[in-house]
């Protein structure tokens, strides 16, 4: 059985969200999501200047913890990546580690009331997208594919949680590495 290690990073207060993600990963990818705790000092990846987590530092720390398995860190804090103001997620291309932030995926971020179902859906899409990068998938031009590029929640809503076409073919070729 294939396994993915999901590491909540200060997200323990959202057990429902994590359970829904586990269920969907089983359904969509046929993988068992095991939950773990970070094996590194979370503070070391935090930038006090930008008040955000450094996505690159998180990826390195998560990869060191992962061993041969895929590992996905999920945080409620905002992420930045070097020159970028923020990112919704990041991943090692053809690597093992991915990280996703729900910070900007929350309806509350744009002044709307909380929408747990929408957040579950957005998180799943983001996790599928970043995991796709770890299988070597690049951005896809098909808006219906999970690998379609999205820079904000609206664009995340437009794409699906499924790999399509060539992305699906590459995923099937490489899924044995899960």
């Amino acid at each position: 059985m294939s396994h993915v290690l999901v590491v909540p990073l200060e997200l323990e207060h959202r057990p429902g969200l994590l359970r829904a993600l586990k269920r969907q990963l089983k359904r969509r990818l046929g993988v068992d999501a095991d939950f773990g705790t970070p094996a590194f000092e979370l503070e070391s990846c935090f930038s006090a200047v930008r008040m955000q987590y450094d996505a690159m530092a998180l990826l390195e720390a998560l990869a060191a913890q992962a061993g041969p398995r895929r590992i996905v860190g999920i945080t409620e804090s905002d992420l930045f990546l070097s020159v970028f103001t923020h990112v919704l997620g990041a991943a090692q291309l053809d690597g093992v580690a991915a990280v996703v932030s729900v910070h900007r995926l929350r309806s509350e971020a744009v002044g709307l009331p909380p929408d747990p179902a929408l957040l579950e859906e957005r998180l799943l899409k983001e996790v599928m997208h970043e995991l796709g990068h770890t299988f070597g998938l690049r951005h896809c031009q098909n808006p219906a594919c999970a690998m379609f590029s999205a820079n904000n929640p609206d664009e995340v809503d437009l794409r699906s949680a499924e790999y399509r076409g060539n992305c699906l073919r590459i995923f099937h070729e490489k899924r044995h590495s899960l």
């Binding site: 690159m56 990546l81 020159v83």
Partner: peptide, 15 residues
């Protein structure tokens, strides 16, 4: 370097 690196990865991911 970090700017070049992250922008390179960003654009490469877009093809």
């Amino acid at each position: 370097f970090s700017v070049r690196d992250s922008l390179t990865h960003w654009f490469e991911a877009d093809g």
